Simulated scan of single mutants.
Amino acid sequence: MSYRMILNETSYFGAGSISNLVDEVKKRSFKKALVVTDKDLIKFNVATKVTSLLDQNGLMYQIFDEVMPNPTIGIVQKGVDIFKQSGADYLIAIGGGSPQDTAKAIGIIINNPEFADVRSLEGVAPTKKPSVPIIAIPTTAGTAAEVTINYVITDEEKKRKFVCVDPHDIPVVAIVDSEMMASMPASLKAATGVDALTHAIEGYITKGAWELSDMFHLKAIEVISRSLRDSVKGVAKGVEDMALGQYIAGMGFSNVGLGLVHGMAHPLGAFYGTPHGVANAVLLPHIMAYNAEFTADKYRNIAKAMGVKGTEAMSTQAARQAAVEAVKQLNKDVGIPATLKEIGVKKEDIAALAQAAFADVCTGGNPRDTNIKEIEELYLSVYH
């Protein structure tokens, strides 16, 4: 059996690590950046922390701030056009998963123009050239897009999200600075934090998991579980630890895949614009319970990493239940909604949601094989 591990080239961590941006730009002889971000990050002066550094050092850039949550094919194509017009030779992605994913798609298409329709990037696309260089600066502690080979785009016309998996899209530099995340509202910290936990748990139990990825995922579960509550409260140490925990999770799941939580969450974003972290967080404990019998003794390790005491003495069944309950309690403590109805899901859409979830690329990695009928039943079980 052969296993593959791909990580980004250079990463910086810790409060204030954004200061490394200028040296990285200069030593790589980059000339002009297209800064990919969203209007809120401009409005609330989060992106300014980056552009001010560029200004102070005479580094050229142009801003593309039209990224929306759940970025669409149209947004990507607009970004490609602006990159071509700008004279830029690299990208700086500032934001959560949406700006990061948009930058990846732009960078890939610029150097692989045969994929300009965007849809052809779905799955494992046979691109030939690496993306335009990307410097990724996350502002949320959740997606770990700065270290993954994945990105997700929404096809508005067909009401579906599609996952792109491409080693050519990984950023060359990641700057994981908790000060860039400090201004996130508590609700966003909660949702993106449980998104990161979902990455860690699904990556740990997915069919492709192996010893090295397990190491990353268990450590990520530990760090996230001990830090998320403090992060949501605004405790600086909690924010900094969450920034690290979500990155560690990304190192793992990017290389082994995910599962049914993501498969069922993606259609919610496509149908309703549901924030990805919220969708994952609501679904996670329910899908964990569904998968429990197909995970050997791994839930015991999850429970232990989440701080549950006495796991060694528990039966396998009790340990599995303890892991599920620990996730439920964390969700409750950080204010995650309990049902799909609370986040705007319509009961009459569930059949279509189930079909889309079954077709999602992430679903194939689930430890338990599933079908459309069972997915429909799962959606209904989480509805109320």
Rank of each mutant, 00 (worst) to 15 (best):
V163R: 04
E179Q: 15
R160V: 07
G142D: 13
I134W: 01
G193A: 13
E122V: 01
T143F: 05
I134F: 06
S178N: 11
I134P: 05
I149M: 15
L188N: 05
V173E: 11
T143W: 14
I170E: 02
P133M: 03
A125D: 09
I135Y: 04
M184H: 01
A200C: 09
P138D: 12
A182Q: 12
A200G: 12
L197N: 11
A141I: 08
V172T: 04
G142H: 13
T143A: 14
E156Q: 12
A196Y: 10
I135H: 00
H199V: 00
L197M: 15
L188W: 05
P167I: 01
V124T: 10
T148Q: 05
V152A: 07
L121D: 13
M181F: 08
V132F: 00
K129W: 02
A136M: 01
D166Y: 03
V176E: 06
K128A: 13
V172W: 02
K161T: 02
P130D: 08
V173P: 10
G123E: 11
P126D: 13
V165I: 15
A136Y: 04
V194F: 14
P167Y: 07
T192Q: 09
P138Q: 09
K189F: 06
K189C: 12
T192F: 14
P167S: 05
P130C: 00
I170S: 13
E157S: 08
P171E: 07
V152I: 15
T198V: 06
R160N: 01
A182V: 15
I170M: 13
K161N: 15
V124C: 08
V173N: 12
D195I: 01
I170Q: 07
A144D: 11
I201V: 15
V172E: 14
D166C: 14
E122P: 00
K129T: 10
P171S: 12
R160C: 08
I201L: 05
E146C: 06
D166K: 04
S131H: 08
A141G: 15
P130A: 00
V194A: 06
A186Q: 13
I175P: 02
P126A: 11
N150A: 10
T140A: 09
E122Q: 15
A136C: 12
E122S: 14
K128D: 11
A145K: 05
E156T: 05
S131A: 15
G123W: 08
I153L: 10
V194K: 05
A196R: 01
R160L: 07
I201G: 08
A136N: 03
T154E: 11
A174F: 11
G193T: 09
A190H: 02
A200T: 03
V194E: 12
E202N: 07
I153Y: 10
A196V: 04
D166A: 10
A196C: 11
G193R: 12
L188S: 11
V172D: 01
M180E: 09
S187C: 07
A144E: 11
D166E: 10
S178L: 08
K129Y: 03
F162A: 04
T127F: 07
A144F: 14
A144S: 15
P171A: 11
E179C: 03
P171W: 03
G193N: 10
I135R: 01
I135T: 00
M184P: 00
G193Q: 06
F162Y: 05
T140F: 12
S178K: 06
A190V: 06
S131N: 07
Y151T: 04
A196P: 01
E156F: 01
S131F: 03
P167C: 06
A174L: 09
E122W: 00
